[in-house]
Amino acid sequence: MLTVKDLNVWFGFPPDRVDAVKAASFAVAPGESFGLVGESGSGKSTILRAIAGLIDTWSGRIEVDGKAVAGRTRDRAFYRTVQMVFQDPYASLHPRHSVDAVLNEALTLQGMDDIDARITRLLEDVGLGRGFRFRYPHQLSGGQRQRVAIARALAAEPRLLLLDEPTSALDVSVQAEILNLLADLRAEHKLTYVMVSHDLAVVAHMCDRLAVMQHGRILEVMTADALRRGAGQQDYTRNLIAASTGYSRS
């Protein structure tokens, strides 16, 4: 479904050039859920943005569904295959657009017909009733906003969903709801996920396999079971797992 090979991403020009991702390679099979974990600045979100076409300073090879993509240009077929959910639901919805306007625009741009019925169905899919259709973002809670953002991503009926820390800005009880929703949607629509998170427990819960990143490099790719066992091959991975299990007085 997705193949990333020798991906380098950088920002700025020499001498201020920052290499955010260095020679990253991984592959995600159709229907799989793949995690990218690491601390802030490890380049995990940058990989998602490069795949989505939001960054043009990258080299290497990105293949989606067997087709290679280039630079920042993506055709309409790409957007019907790949969609993204952003970290902060307070920043990813236009403050002046109602839920209706957001979904309407997404559906129109994808050239869908029967928009009215589709909006109703999308809202039902993400667990929001009709009552939410004409609300503005400021009338929604964080969890509801994230549901709208997920509905917007689903509007194009994609097969690959890029999830950039979709629950890190939410309360834990709301996080559980959103994670359950994502799991349901994946089963229902046969979606493939690539999920970025700093929370190892969330990734272990959601993903089959994951890549551990540090300073822009992928240190290792491991299974969720190995993560739960704490069986990292690198010291960094083991330390990260130990630190994540909680605080213990030194």
Binding site: V172, S173, Q175, A176, L179, D199, L200, A201, V202, A204, H205, L227, R228, I241, S244, T245
Partner: peptide, 9 residues
């Protein structure tokens, strides 16, 4: 409601 590393659900 917290996912846990040591107790998969």
């Amino acid at each position: 409601s917290l996912p846990r590393l040591d107790a998969p659900v």
